[in-house]
């Protein structure tokens, strides 16, 4: 995996876009792995009864996609210090989702970078705006 360092990044850098789309099997596995029996994540009839257009992607799954988006870009020797997201709108099964992000601030002393992140759907609507704070290694400390 690629490794970013405090020297390798600049304010304004864009993270490579992460694409995600969860099918029924993945949502089922996520419900199982998180021991979440909520019907809106597997029962289409029930989800529609609650007013949703289809089965709903779990909020915490999208949260974990956000952390993956950041850690895949930053590399394994970086440390995620904070992530904050807002659930603005739901994502549904099979929907093509995109994660966009950029570096908005760098603190050289602390070796941290603040990132601005967005999960968007195909129409460009922002489902989850987020920020992340990540600590990066220095080029000198990597062997």
């Amino acid at each position: 995996m690629k490794q970013q360092t405090i020297e390798s990044i600049s304010v304004g850098d864009q993270l490579p876009v992460l694409h995600k789309s969860a099918d029924e099997a993945q949502l089922f596995l996520y419900s199982a792995a998180s021991f979440n029996p909520h019907r809106i994540h597997y029962d289409r009839t029930y989800a529609e009864f609650e007013g949703h257009t289809d089965i709903i992607v779990h909020g915490p799954l999208q949260g974990s996609w956000l952390t993956q988006f950041v850690t895949d870009w930053a590399g394994p020797a970086s440390r995620l210090l904070n992530i904050t997201w807002q659930n603005r709108a739901s994502a549904i099964v099979g929907e093509n989702l995109e994660f966009h992000g950029s570096v908005t601030e760098i603190n050289q002393t602390e070796r941290t970078a603040l990132l601005s992140l967005e999960e968007r759907n195909r129409n460009g609507a922002i489902l989850m705006p987020a920020t992340a704070l990540i600590k990066l290694p220095s080029q000198n400390t990597l062997k």
């Binding site: 995996m1 993945q26 596995l29 199982a32 850690t71 394994p76």
Partner: peptide, 11 residues
């Protein structure tokens, strides 16, 4: 199991 359900295969 959790990581794989997310699709996060970070080593």
């Amino acid at each position: 199991r959790y990581a794989l359900a997310v699709g996060d295969e970070n080593p």
